[in-house]
Design a protein around this nucleic acid. Structure first.
Lengths: 336, 336
DNA sequence: CTGAAAGCGCTTACAG
DNA sequence: CTGAAAGCGCTTACAG
């Protein structure tokens, strides 16, 4: 079905051996006569020969391909990090296979298996604790793998994370400065032990304490997305309702904005808002939305670079954790 | 470096031949004794054997992998279609490699080559006319390939498209109904002959004519994104400025919203707005934004199904063009 | 400077 | 019911 000209055809046509053609393909011209070189080159063009990477991989044991498994591709965070990973990889002529685990551990395991069977050279993953055993097995084998966005108690490994506590601290400090003294926070559930949520809530608590403001647990809403509307209602029905809210991520933000719109609260004036994660419409909104931006580009770049290094050196079992600094983008939703 | 247990190890350990293990792996139990079966199964688990898909592919000539090349992954359209393609493929245990050509023909050609050398079983692409020759070559070889979003004069092929003219017609009809009588349209440049832009402008013109409204070419702005702010200024400085505008896609929308905000126009009241492409924040905005939604999910699904069928049957050289219907989602930006 | 041979890890007719 | 052998398209020591 496909153009099936192989290295043998080229060799025959050019009147040399397969070995020589292979040397040519791999740019090992050291001992090759100019003439042979030219002849092979010409033949390759004439026959429109395209090497079979599969055959090459079988022999060389590498595929110039990495796998990236994200927990939920709907987050802007994921798409941005992926783009950045791809940029780095594309420059180095590495292909990337992107997988969306949909926060389903089984699905993720399945992807890992498929990717490994396709012999990808390494993996970047947003890890789930349910699959800790599998990660550990791979790491023990010195299989190159980088964690992103989450830490696992059970498995130490090179990891890229946001300084989540700082993100919350920036938000709290900024809101307090702008005279919002009753600050709530909303995130997805904490029970799954997912690093960003845990750390963002912890950072929020610590920041309040730093300012000697008591932490009111009623102001901490960590619930599934489908219960957020109801919990927001409850939150603002409290005897002393908050006058500001921190949104834990971009999907939570959508819920909060929708609630605010529905109830005709005046953003900024009545309810101060800061969200973690920059969203494309933040500046278009009225009032524009104050965000805490993750350096997604740098994080993706670092993840890719770490992985590619690991693949090349095939050695260092680093367990370093790289923390990236969030930055506050002040707009109008946090100004009275 | 990786667990290198192969089919030979399993065979030796289980006391059978490689052939038999292979039969087992491929679920050809027809003539296999229960006992052999059990023994192999047990050995595979004991050794934690994972078949090497690369070796398999070399022999079988298929990789259970397809390639998807989009022109610009920043469009919501692309990400949604990709997700939908992945859904279908994942169900059928096919992997997808996603590539972002960044609207760069060379980069795209490069991706095509890489994907082919990796022996992907087929390709879904948003085609660029610069690479028409390459598509034609592949199609002639009966290599399975599906076009998405764009038509190419030079190459006939199975294609998935929006009914773009209808999209504009829906927008025009709706705006006229709501008493906006001076309707402009803004898209990215037409010179590159890119189907959606051409057809959306054409649909706009035809719809106006249908209503016996003369087409004012000053109301048609097809310019690069970086010139949109300026052209919007020009547009609204006309002696008779428009009172409504149709946005050609989601990226254009951002420019228009930004312009409207900057100039403190009142959306809906002063300027009616309908955008082609549904965006996640459409309903959150104040006023909420009227959109023309593409059935991205169905389109991706269809593309994947057509491709997988083509791959399986390895035959039908269909050139059918599948047109999908857009739908109008009425919100408040188009109501006075 | 170039070629013959072995081998990567599978699958698949075919023989028995 | 199972195995020996050939072969997929490359690469890589090694020999000359």
């Amino acid at each position: 079905m496909r153009g099936k000209v192989t290295i043998s055809h080229v060799a025959r046509e050019a009147g040399v051996s397969k070995s020589t053609v292979s040397q040519f393909l791999n740019a090992r011209y050291d001992y090759m006569s100019e003439e042979t070189k030219k002849r092979i080159e010409k033949t390759i063009i004439e026959l429109n020969y395209q090497p079979n990477a599969i055959a090459r991989s079988l022999k060389t044991k590498n595929t110039a391909t990495i796998g990236v498994i994200v927990a939920n591709i709907l987050h802007t965070y994921s798409t941005q990090v992926i783009r950045s990973i791809e940029n780095v990889c594309h420059e180095r002529r590495i292909s990337t296979i992107i997988c969306n685990a949909d926060n389903d551990p089984e699905k993720e395991l399945n992807y890992i298996e498929t990717l490994l069977s396709k012999q990808v050279d390494g993996l970047i993953v947003i890890p789930m604790k349910e699959n800790a055993k599998e990660y550990r097995r791979l790491i023990n084998q010195k299989y190159p793998i980088i964690f992103l966005d989450r830490l696992l108690d059970e498995v130490e490994n090179e990891s890229i994370l946001l300084n989540n506590e700082l993100a919350s601290e920036l938000a709290v400090d900024h809101l307090l400065e702008n005279k919002y003294d009753k600050i709530a926070i909303m995130t997805t559930p904490l029970n799954a032990n997912i690093t960003p949520r845990l750390e963002r809530v912890r950072g929020y608590e610590n920041a309040l304490r730093k300012h000697r403001i008591p932490v009111d647990t009623q102001y901490i809403k960590s619930v599934p997305v489908n219960r957020m509307q109801k919990e927001l209602e409850n939150l603002f029905k409290l005897t002393i309702p908050p006058n500001a809210i921190i949104s834990g991520n971009d999907l939570t933000l959508v819920e909060i904005l929708s609630f605010i719109k529905q109830n005709e609260y005046v953003l900024g004036k009545e309810i101060g808002l800061v969200t973690i994660d920059e969203v494309p419409y933040a500046s278009l909104f009225t009032p524009s939305i104050t965000t805490i931006m993750q350096p997604t580009f740098e994080m993706g770049k670092k993840a890719a670079e770490l992985l590619l290094d690991k693949i090349e050196k095939k050695s260092n079992l680093s367990r370093e954790i790289y923390r990236f600094k969030p930055s506050l983008i002040v707009r109008n939703s946090s100004i009275k």
